[in-house]
Each structure stands twice: as structure tokens, then as C-alpha cells.
């Protein structure tokens, strides 16, 4: 009888212990942007970022002391280069990640390979996936990461600043009569442009331009012939194409005098990292695009 009582008490204490641990422990459950329930530490201190954009957000939130690893092409801010590398965004080095003993990995939905994410989870490493598919979602992503890293206030400040600057651009752009036709070139050989489902399309449209290659194909391949026929008013080339200088690409377009952008010398270079990387710097990119696409708007303001 006494034995039974002891057994019962033991079981009770045991279960209480578990309840306490779950209720007041150092973990909590959140739902990430892949719709999965993820157990994350309340205050993670060993974070591995699985994309350059995530690294930028963590730095912008001032939480870089929690960062323990970044991906190969994390180049902004410059300090990010000094962190251990865990492979590239599309080819993660799982062993390296595990060896950094992360208590949280931040991944990108539809960017990092899902196999690698599942793999990390099976090794008991929590992975939270963000989904920065457009400008609004980038702000969601900043708020998500701020929430995870205990930097809610910083996140709110960044988002407020971004929203204000976007609003400013919107009021400016509402004054234009006609949208200049923009051809945005992200690839040189072959010539590649951007469709509707991209950041660049969103930024061009917000900046008061008309994206000539909008449509269902995200990264359509174009020919010189097609570009000539469309007659863009503005030609913007990103620095994405490595190894080829902006000047040589510009010189190639210069041959076609019939393009309005060539006639009026409106060919510009933009750093691809600030227009296609889902980070707070997208707003810098947006303001730069306004400057290139609708320069007269900026002249009117005092």
C-alpha cells in the first residue's frame, strides 16, 4: 500500500516537473512562414543565418552579437565577412552548421533547399523559415526576426522608417503624368529582365516606372531585337553580372541610337544587392530608382 502511494507520488512529481518545464522553460512554440510549428529558445544566443538578407536584418536589428555563422555571400555590413561561413545560400554545409552548435537557424522559404532544412531539424536544430516574397513581406520578416531575437522595438523602428520613406515616394510618384518605360537588365548574356513576381518589378512600379517586361515569367530572357521594339525610356543594369564591366555593357547598348534611353543618355548602373536582396536596404534601392526613373520629381521638392 505504502509502496503504491510512493509510486503515485513519484509519478505526480515527475509529471509536475514536465509541466513546469514546458510552461516556464526556456523554449516556446512559434509558427514559421512554412506553416510549421517550431520550438525556439526564448532568448536564442547562437543564431546561424542561412541567407545574406537574413544576415543584414540581424545586423540592422543590432543583434549581431548573437550571430554565430553566415552564408558565403553575406557581404553587408562589411563586418559580416568576419563570421564563420556555412556554405552558400543554395548549398548549405550541414556539418559546419552543426559544429557551430546553433540554438536557432534562420532560413528562407523557397530559397534554402527544403532537404537541408529538414535535415537540420532531424538533428534537433530549430529552423525558422521567413518568406520575404515582396516589400510588405520583408517588413513581416523583419518583425518576425525581431520577435525571435528579442529585438521587437528595433524591428518596429526599422519598419516605421521604411514605411515612412515608402509613403514619401508614393506621394511624390502620385504627381507624375506618365510612367517612363523601364527596361531592367539583370543578365548580360543572355539578356535577362524581370517579370511581375519580383522585388524589382515592385520597386520599379513604386518608383513610378513602367516595367516593360512584366508578366508571368519571373526572369524572362530577351533579345536585343525585342528591347529595340519596346523602346525603353530608361535602361537600368544591375551589377549582378560579374566579370563584365558596366561600361562595356553600356557601350553595347550605345550602338542602338533608336532607343530613347540611349538617345537621352539614361543608362544607369544599380548595385544588385540593394534591389534584389530582401533587406531594409530595399528602401535605399527604391529611392535610387526614383532618382533614375523620375529625376524631375526630386528637383521639384525643396
Amino acid at each position: 500500500m505504502v509502496k503504491k502511494l510512493f509510486k503515485f507520488l513519484g509519478a505526480l512529481i515527475f509529471s509536475l516537473f514536465f509541466i513546469l518545464q514546458n510552461g516556464y522553460g526556456s523554449d516556446r512554440e512559434v509558427i514559421d512562414r512554412l506553416g510549421r510549428v517550431v520550438r525556439v529558445p526564448i532568448d536564442p544566443v547562437r543564431v546561424v543565418s542561412l541567407a545574406p538578407s537574413v544576415t543584414e536584418v540581424v545586423f540592422a536589428l543590432g543583434q549581431d552579437q548573437k550571430l554565430k555563422g553566415v552564408t558565403q555571400f553575406s557581404n553587408y555590413p562589411p563586418e559580416a565577412v568576419n563570421f564563420p561561413r556555412v556554405g552558400s545560400y543554395v548549398h548549405l554545409d550541414v556539418e559546419k552548421i552543426v559544429s557551430l552548435r546553433p540554438d536557432l537557424c534562420l532560413a528562407i522559404k523557397d530559397g534554402n533547399p527544403i532537404d537541408a532544412i529538414r535535415r537540420l531539424e532531424r538533428l534537433n536544430i530549430p529552423v525558422y523559415a521567413v518568406d520575404p516574397r515582396n516589400l510588405d513581406a520583408v517588413m513581416e520578416m523583419i518583425s518576425d526576426i525581431g520577435d525571435l531575437l528579442d529585438a521587437v522595438r528595433q524591428a518596429e523602428m526599422i519598419i516605421k522608417d521604411m514605411k515612412e520613406r515608402i509613403e514619401k515616394v508614393k506621394t511624390l510618384v502620385s504627381r507624375i503624368q506618365e510612367r517612363p518605360k523601364v527596361f531592367f537588365q539583370i543578365g548580360v548574356a543572355p539578356i535577362v529582365s524581370v517579370g511581375t513576381q519580383t522585388f524589382l518589378h515592385e520597386l520599379i512600379t513604386l518608383a513610378g516606372g513602367y516595367n516593360l517586361t512584366q508578366g508571368g515569367v519571373s526572369y524572362p530572357r530577351m533579345t536585343v531585337e525585342q528591347v529595340l521594339a519596346m523602346g525603353p525610356d530608361v535602361l537600368i543594369i544591375t551589377s549582378m553580372t560579374r566579370g563584365q564591366s558596366f561600361e562595356s555593357v553600356k557601350a553595347q547598348w550605345k550602338r542602338w541610337e533608336s532607343i530613347p534611353a540611349v538617345k537621352n543618355n539614361r543608362i544607369y548602373l544599380v548595385d544588385s544587392d540593394i534591389v534584389d536582396r530582401p533587406s531594409p536596404r530595399l528602401v535605399d534601392g527604391l529611392e535610387m530608382l526614383v532618382h533614375y526613373i523620375n529625376p524631375e520629381l526630386l528637383k521639384q521638392t525643396p
Partner: peptide, 9 residues
């Protein structure tokens, strides 16, 4: 951690 890396990766 090393054992995880060796035997599971």
C-alpha cells in the same frame, strides 16, 4: 556534438 557530426552527418 562531434558524435552527432560523425555518426549522423
Amino acid at each position: 556534438m562531434m558524435q552527432t557530426i560523425i555518426w549522423q552527418i
